[in-house]
């Protein structure tokens, strides 16, 4: 139990370091504050439960954590969309622009400025392909439909967009 207690202290450190990125990401994708909190809580608890599953061979810890958070957020927003379409209450909800009030509430940060700047450096199609998928939770098929471009184009733009982001951010940090 002593050991477990020590681990709890470590988890508090982890919470301090990643709760902001996890919650912010979930909130960006899910939008609804109450649901975002629910999903973020699930993700943080899952980190605690499955910390031992983290495998450094497969990438950085932050990538692992934020990938998990993103996956859960996307699952939630998709099932909510599917439900609302089933109910035919809402055909297609109007989701705001990629950078909304959630982002505004965030304290200033160098990383965010750079990401924004680097996103601005993409072509419009690259940026839309990447942000509709990552921040709005659309599948690449849905993105292709919304942007009225072929599937192959969307896949290529996603790859090119991410690669250009990497180059741009690599220079920044």
């Amino acid at each position: 139990m002593l050991v477990a207690h020590g681990d709890q202290t470590a988890f508090e450190e982890l919470y301090g370091a990643v709760s902001g990125p996890v919650y912010g990401l979930v909130r960006r994708v899910v939008r609804d504050p109450a649901q975002s909190e629910e999903v973020a809580q699930e993700v943080l608890l899952e980190l605690w439960r499955s910390a031992a599953r983290f495998d450094p061979e497969r990438g950085s810890a932050l990538a692992w954590i934020l990938t998990l958070a993103h996956r859960r957020a996307v699952d939630r927003v998709r099932s909510a969309r599917a439900a609302s379409e089933r109910d035919q209450r809402v055909g297609r909800r109007a989701y705001g622009p990629a950078f909304d009030q959630v982002a505004e509430a965030v304290e200033a940060g160098l990383e965010r400025d750079w990401v924004r700047r680097c996103l601005d450096g993409l072509t419009q199609l690259q940026r839309q392909s990447v942000t509709l998928a990552y921040y709005e939770g659309y599948t690449y098929r849905e993105v292709a439909q919304r942007l009225s471009v072929p599937l192959g184009t969307v896949k290529t733009r996603m790859r090119d967009g991410l690669t250009r982001l990497r180059e741009c951010l690599g220079r920044a940090i």
Binding site: Y23, L25, L165
Partner: peptide
């Protein structure tokens, strides 16, 4: 790892 940079930019106080 690239996609995760997008996540960082969304960080907000929980």
């Amino acid at each position: 790892e690239d996609a995760v940079r997008l996540a960082w930019s969304a960080a907000a106080p929980a």
